[in-house]
Amino acid sequence: MAENGQHTGTFRVKSGMAQMLKGGVIMDVVNAEQARIAEEAGAVAVMALERVPADIRADGGVARMSDPEMISEIQAAVSIPVMAKARIGHFVEAQVLEALEVDYIDESEVLTPADEAHHIDKAAFEVPFVCGATNLGEALRRIGEGAAMIRSKGEAGTGNVVEAVRHMRAIVGGIRRLGVLDDEELMTEAKNLQAPYELVRWVAENGRLPVVLFTAGGIATPADAALMMQLGADGVFVGSGIFKSGDPARRGQAIVKATTHFKDAKVIADVSRGLGEAMVGREMGDLKEEERLATRGW
């Protein structure tokens, strides 16, 4: 939209917002009290949702967009950006979140998908979107739909970093591979990746995604966060890992510091001392196929 020469909702404004979050930690919160603790711990943004993924897993049933009342309370409680989740393909939930003026929408596999075949047409919105991806092709399809930020999916609510590592390596490795292909090979690779050719070409030329790449799904400790940063993440989403732990305020601060000083093992050691109980983790082999969230979306 253009008003008084001011253009809102441009892709540069949407992706630029994510650039301002780089090197930071975005924390899941379920009420205003937790949002204040997160802000105090140094979070760059909060994700407002009714239940953290670990509880969604435990409770079962259909997980939907949060109550607008709760989102508004969180917006009133903090000055940092507030994000919220819409179900995959549920563009009306996204319209509602845009009307609430959330700062970013996460079209998220953590909620129960509303459409098994289609994701939201994200380019049609003024508010920017972040989407999950398990590999490079999936990341580029979401960007093709207008996502202005990508996060590796991981396996939310498990406290187990193994899937986040797998997905980050798949995305970063995929980017590296494109760099050595010649022009003829790029079209074939676009076919293999099932990704838009122009985006494949852009990534091959620039050696990175055209948007910021965060990590998510299973990060529970400062060392987990630093691991993901060293693997190539621009920043970290922590869901259940903070408020399902023994001392959320301290753990939050520790993960924030480890994310900034991710190459400095002494700092990571220091902030990891006596943090108390991490959230209880789950082994991937114990998850039934239908319990896996990362396979939602395509």
Partner: peptide
């Protein structure tokens, strides 16, 4: 004035 121009949906480019 922090966030003086409003939340992200009001972010803009202008000459």
């Amino acid at each position: 004035e922090r966030n003086g121009f409003g939340r992200q949906v009001h972010s803009f480019e202008a000459d």
